[in-house]
Write a protein that binds this DNA or RNA. Structure first.
Length: 507
RNA sequence: GGUCGCAUGGCCGAGUGGCUAGGCAGAGGUCUGCAAAACCUCGUACGGCGGUUCGAAUCCGUCUGCGACCUCCA
């Protein structure tokens, strides 16, 4: 590792040099989905962002343990208080199936989607229901430390007491104790078991109709949301680990409470660096599952609708890699606005990048190749791309460097630039770096080349057709040559007449 | 109301105290039987008003607008 990675730490709100606890190793925890419904696209953005971070850390030489949980119990619908229902349980009740059927179904769907977006599997993907014992232990530790209280079989985290003894509550989300206190007046009206509105449940007594329940010292019940992340990150990464990630909307209350739980249980801060991926917007507004009461429509689009084009929000379907490319084009800490126009632009950009890659692979080094300004320029563009990634994983900027390289590559192909000005070593490096960025770091795949079967029949067939068309063109038999071109077009195969013959691509 | 963040050329989207981000669209050109594709060239933008500075789109203040969180979401 020659260059230090700097990253923006949400906890300090500053960009900091990244120093792992154990040299050469990184422990990273990212909050995964609650599997009570289909993954939605905003979810995918977050995980693609962290996939790129994961890939880049590994590419930089770190051994990374990447833990991303599946929340399959405890995430309540509505307020944490009595009367709220667990999301999974609710779904199971509505569908009249077992909660674990709900979990199985949506976990599968989630994994499928992650595969479609070409994200790498995390090293460990622990489930909340598989760690009930660890969670009960943590509740006990918090109680032992006097930072929680039991009410009617439920256990609540005492935020006021914690805030008084520890200055870290509210630090992440910028909330302060005075605000917590001032909220009291309004909210005390609500019938509540909690001593204070900002307290939150870490163990919840299950009412008899509740489907998911476990025995505990306090009641038959289930763990609170937030707790699973505290317990599982501790179990697999230790009491303090390097990086904790998640969507920006989890900052409060989820991550704030997670920190409180870990501090409350062991007195130590869970993660040194907190990274938050920003929201995916659609037409300027947060993409959200919830349905607008006025319009009756949700401001969202599912990944499948995006692929097929079956949505009023877009004019056509877009492939998963175009979406992934689109996500690479913005910084993970910025909001990204999904519009039809932006997607159309991304689709073209993606193709240009892939064509550039293909062109590059076909370039052959010149034996006379010598160092020159061009050679220097190529190398500094490559260096810059890595510098950009080291600077808080600035993928859009690194991508811009690749596009500048594409211009050079095309210049070399077209002959405005000469391979005599590029050393064989630089060309080799360029091929390697280009490949690595596109496929290993950005995690894109080349969809345009994946056509036909792998038996080569398609290629042979197309070559035959192209040859026939070529000879009819030579004979100025435009009727035949145009018929071939138009018919193929209808079959979604586009012929491209270039200087060095005709190539084809499937749309 | 509280907390935080953002306002960049037609669109998306980076960035920095003084040096062209990039992609798409648009204009011109090369190529082509025509077309498509591809390639080349081009645009000098940074919400309003003050201030700091030799110099600010970049720093500070302020106003306006937008968004997120505070209630379920990545």
């Amino acid at each position: 590792m020659t260059n230090t990675i700097h990253l923006h730490n949400s906890l300090t709100r500053k960009k900091e040099a990244f120093t792992p606890i154990n040299e050469g190793r990184v422990g990273m925890y990212v909050c995964g989905p609650t599997v009570y419904s289909d993954v939605h696209l905003g979810n995918c953005r977050t995980f693609v962002n962290f996939d790129i971070i994961y890939r880049y850390l590994m590419y930089s030489g770190y051994k990374v343990r990447y833990v991303r949980n599946i929340t399959d119990v405890g995430h309540l619908e509505g307020d944490t208080d009595i009367g709220a229902e667990d999301k999974i349980s609710k779904k199971a009740r509505l569908e009249q199936i077992e909660p674990m059927e709900v979990v199985q179904h949506y976990t599968g769907g989630f994994h499928d989607m992650m595969r479609i977006f070409n994200t790498l599997s995390p090293s460990i993907e622990p489930r909340a229901t598989g760690h009930i014992i660890e969670q009960i232990e943590m509740v006990q530790q918090i109680l032992d430390n006097g930072l929680a209280y039991v009410k009617n079989g439920s256990v609540y985290f005492d935020t006021l007491k914690f805030a008084k003894t520890n200055d870290s509550y509210g630090k992440l989300s910028g909330r302060i104790i005075d605000d917590l206190l001032s909220e009291t007046r309004d909210d005390l009206k609500n019938q509540s078991e909690k001593n204070h509105p900002s307290d939150f449940a870490i163990w919840i007594k299950a009412d008899p109709s509740h489907l998911m329940r476990w025995d505990s010292p306090w009641s038959v019940g289930f763990p609170g949301w937030h707790l699973e992340c505290s317990a599982m990150s501790t179990k697999y990464l230790g009491k303090t680990f390097d990086i904790h990630g998640g969507g920006n909307d989890l900052k409060f209350p989820h991550h704030e409470n997670e920190i409180a739980q870990n501090e409350g249980a062991c007195g130590c801060s869970p993660a040194n660096y907190w990274l938050h991926a920003n929201m995916l917007l659609m037409n300027g507004k947060k993409m959200s599952k919830s349905i607008d009461p006025e319009t009756g429509v949700s401001n969202s689009i599912t990944p499948n609708e995006l692929f097929t084009g079956d949505s009023p929000h877009i004019s056509k379907g877009f492939s998963p890699m175009v979406i992934r490319f689109f996500m690479c084009q913005s910084h993970y800490r910025s909001t990204l606005d999904l519009t039809d126009e932006a997607l159309l632009a991304a689709e073209k950009g993606y193709r240009r990048l892939m064509e550039g890659f293909k062109t590059l692979q076909a370039l052959e080094a010149s034996a006379k190749g010598a160092a020159s300004d061009l050679d220097k320029e190529l190398n500094s563009l490559m260096d810059a791309a890595f510098t950009d990634m080291n600077d808080d994983f600035n993928s859009p900027k690194a991508l811009a460097r690749l596009f500048e390289l594409v211009t050079k590559i095309n210049g070399l192909k077209e002959g405005h630039l000469s391979l005599n000005d590029v050393t064989p070593d630089t060309l080799t490096r360029l091929k390697q770096v280009f490949h690595d960025f596109i496929f290993e770091i950005f995690g894109l795949t080349n969809e345009t080349s994946a056509v036909g079967g792998d038996d080569g029949a398609m290629d042979g067939l197309m070559q035959l057709i192209i040859d026939i068309r070529q000879s009819s063109r030579k004979n100025k038999d435009w009727a035949t040559s145009d018929k071939i071109r138009d018919t193929l077009k209808e079959l979604k195969i586009v012929l491209k007449d270039g200087k060095d013959g005709t190539s084809w691509v499937k749309e």
